[in-house]
Design a protein around this nucleic acid. Structure first.
Lengths: 137, 137
DNA sequence: CTAATTCCTAGTAAATCGATAGAATTAATA
DNA sequence: TATTAATTCTATCGATTTACTAGGAATTAG
């Protein structure tokens, strides 16, 4: 399941994607438009900025805007940024790989193969969903 | 990600599936064979019993055994039993559906459609992984 | 200088997770 | 019937995570 943070991030990106080119959105505007707690959204937007999805203008009349094409922002990326691995166990993960502590006696974790198959299918599906594909749906 | 509980459940089922027909496995035997904390495993086996995957014989010489074919126990079922919904949000879930609280002003949650596509793909993949398919991998 | 905004750090209440403790119940068998 | 060995049940616990909130510092336009 997605965390609220990831869900709010997606809704915020969706909001930004619906604005006119060159429009800068204040946090409070996004919060009201997408129904997200404002102070919580602040943190989320900072995370999105660190992840190079959005950029900001500080000071009066400042705000946030997309710096990545809405066609290139996928659900997989947002999931990884806020909720981490897409695989069901770390030993089956591409970006968050860790060996299982409780599998050291076995040559390899017995679940790993199956979970990697699932990861591949899920990842492919998540990479197919972009912000652009969600706008106006 | 899978909880430890779900992971341990899968490993316990795998252990049971590898035993001879009619063999009854004590909790401590499964715990040692699959490297799972014994007291924690007790709870998990009770959950698996309530879910009709295993049954038990009480008292001396008691223990647990599969009552569902290893070909018919899928990762999707175990996920649902221990970790709940497979979909990324409740509004996109088949078995754990709930409307989003923060989407009531919109006719429908803007994320829902995309998340349902992902759910379908993931679910299909998870239904393809059975205990039998994991044995000796 | 002032107002409006982002940026940063802490804190917090509630829930969840991973596990442990201990006693009750059940069944085999000597 | 007493003993032993197993499941079953309920409660609790500490640590972590989650979903926020609070308060102020830094930045910028006018």
């Amino acid at each position: 399941m997605l965390s609220h943070k990831a869900k709010y991030a997606l809704k915020a990106l969706l909001y930004l994607a619906e604005q006119d080119e060159n429009h800068i959105s204040r946090t409070v505007e996004i919060a009201e438009g997408a129904n997200i707690p404002k102070k919580f959204l602040e943190q989320i937007l900072l995370d999105l900025k660190r992840g190079r999805f959005v950029s900001s203008k500080q000071g009066k009349f400042g705000g946030y805007y997309l710096i990545k094409s809405k066609n290139d922002i996928t659900l997989a990326e947002i999931h990884r940024l806020f909720d981490g691995a897409i695989a069901l166990l770390p030993c089956a993960s591409l970006n968050f790989y860790e060996p299982c502590a409780d599998c050291k006696t076995e040559s390899e974790c017995s679940l790993r193969h199956g979970l990697m198959l699932i990861r591949d299918k899920t990842l492919k599906a998540m990479e197919g969903i972009t912000i652009a594909s969600l706008v106006n749906k």
